[in-house]
Design a protein around this nucleic acid. Structure first.
Length: 482
DNA sequence: GTGACGTTGTCGCT
DNA sequence: AGCGACAACGTCAC
């Protein structure tokens, strides 16, 4: 016979994982619950343009709006609370007589520190805490356990560990059409104070400058659309993509949705397997689309199990390099003033759209660090973290260590050319002209190295090098030898 | 200790 | 389009 279970009043705390599909924490929260309080806590500390760029914040707000609509359609709501979660949550769990707190596990350093404190406080208040793994394919600890207790440093090692683990868990079932309600009389749940704020209310410009839209609805539509071309999915090989394609990008652009959890990696995994089953001849990891999802996992495992992962100092997997950290070089790189159109156009695309192709990221990261400017990867990582919509700390720091030859990758003599790399994909320079309109009238012959154009050509193009557009801040041929 | 290998370089040659 | 030289890194398997 079953013991009587006391009715539960649950908080479902959203952070990443901004979705209803494949959401085990949501299912845990509604089990035996009379009341469900879905909350998101906006911490004003992060809401500054020098910490979170407008495109990134816009994506978050759109995702919250979509999540709120989906919850409302199921008789629930999303309460957007303001403040530090460590202050806000204890206040509301008291006000609402909460018995259970559920959230998705987050392995990032800042999240673990925060969640440890909140879990302790909740348990002290007699609240049951349930945290589920659903942001990654696997529990990162399981991968580490299969690799002899440490994070794999090579793709091969990672592949071996996950092969031993078997396929990741399937997505959990969708939530019911009717969710438990919020109690009608609960303090602090009126829609005046719990609505999704606008960019303007948060002190940002009225509009984002990107076309990339946030939200679970958008994520699922994009997934369906991208995977509908099965031939393309089966043939996908990342290194063969064109980083200068900007009207129709060469990749899925699902990364922002994976970052915020509008799309479950397990759902993506399952959808890919369905295509591969149908298309017997298909590309394989590490270059395939599945491979891209596995690289994400690789970096999550490394980040979760490496001390000081986000810094050079004290980071056992990071090569210690005496970077120059020339502040003017760093600013020029960030503000598209290096004088190399390929580099400057990529950074302009980043600022405007919050996204660029993976290989374009390689080029600017190599240029800032080991290739040309010799500025620390931590600086570039910070810029990406602020401006990239899909900026995910585990992946971001990991890729910067990779590109700066600080970890995972060490063939430092493989340097991307800031002139020929872009040219081979886009001899006409359409990409450069689009993102750097000052150069739009340069003939293709000089678009990748405009400083070589004769004075008459510069005058005719209406852009004098050294005056309207900078001369190269370093001589690539010279500095890349270092 | 040794040797093979590493998601996605460039240049110049054939 | 495909190949070797470049100048030589760290990790892993043996």
């Amino acid at each position: 016979m079953c013991p009587a279970v006391a009715p539960q009043r649950s908080i479902l705390w959203f952070r990443k994982g901004l979705r209803l599909h494949d959401n085990p924490s949501l299912l845990a929260a509604i089990k035996g619950a009379t009341h469900l309080y879905p909350v998101f806590v906006l911490d004003p500390w992060f809401l500054k343009p020098d910490v979170v760029g407008v495109n990134r914040l816009n994506f978050l707000l759109e995702s919250l709006t979509d999540l709120r609509s989906s919850l409302q359609a199921r008789g629930s709501n999303l309460l957007v609370l303001r403040g530090n979660p460590q202050d806000v949550l204890p206040r509301v769990w008291k006000d609402w007589n909460i018995t259970r707190l559920c959230f998705e596990a987050d392995t990032e350093d800042y999240a673990e520190e925060r969640d440890t404190k909140i879990t302790a406080a909740a348990q002290e208040a007699g609240i049951e805490v349930i945290s589920c793994v659903s942001h990654t394919l696997y529990d990162t600890s399981d991968v580490v356990a299969k690799n002899g207790g440490k994070a794999p440093l090579t793709y091969k090692g990672f592949e071996k560990a996950i092969t031993a683990l078997g396929p990741p868990p399937a997505p959990v079932e969708d939530p019911p059409a009717k969710l438990p309600p919020l109690a009608a009389d609960s303090k602090g749940t009126d829609s005046e104070t719990t609505s999704v704020p606008s960019l303007r209310e948060l002190g940002y410009p009225d509009e984002a400058s990107t076309d990339i839209k946030g939200g679970e609805t958008e994520a699922l539509a994009r997934l369906a659309e991208q995977l509908s071309d099965k031939g393309w999915v089966a043939a996908f090989e990342k290194p063969k993509g064109d980083p200068t394609a900007f009207i129709k990008p060469a990749t899925t652009v699902l990364s922002p949705h994976l970052k915020f959890g509008c799309l479950s990696p397990r759902l993506f995994y399952e959808a890919l397997q369905r295509v591969y089953k149908e298309k017997k001849e298909h590309s394989k990891p590490p270059v395939s689309l599945l491979g891209q999802l596995l690289w994400r996992e690789f970096y999550y495992v490394a980040a979760a199990h490496t001390p000081n992962y986000h810094r050079m100092e004290g980071n056992p997997i990071c090569k210690q390099i005496p970077w120059d950290n020339n502040a003017e070089f760093y600013r020029a790189w960030e503000e598209s003033r290096t004088g190399y159109p390929w580099i400057d156009a990529i950074m302009a695309q980043l600022r405007r759209t919050g996204w660029m192709h993976h290989l374009a990221r390689h080029c600017v990261a190599c240029f800032l660090t080991r290739g040309d400017l010799y500025v620390s990867w931590e600086k570039g990582r910070d810029t990406f973290d602020r401006l990239l919509i899909d900026g995910d700390p585990s992946l971001n720091s990991g890729n910067w260590m990779w590109l700066s030859a600080s970890s995972f990758f060490y063939q430092y003599f493989r340097v991307y050319s800031p002139i020929t790399y872009g040219k081979k994909y886009d001899p006409e320079g359409k990409y450069v002209k689009h993102f750097l309109p000052i150069l739009k009238d340069y003939p293709p012959k000089y678009i990748w190295e405009p400083w070589k154009a004769p004075k008459e050509v510069q005058e005719q193009a209406g852009c004098i090098i050294g005056k309207d557009y900078p001369a190269p801040i370093v001589d690539h041929a010279e500095v890349s030898k270092r």
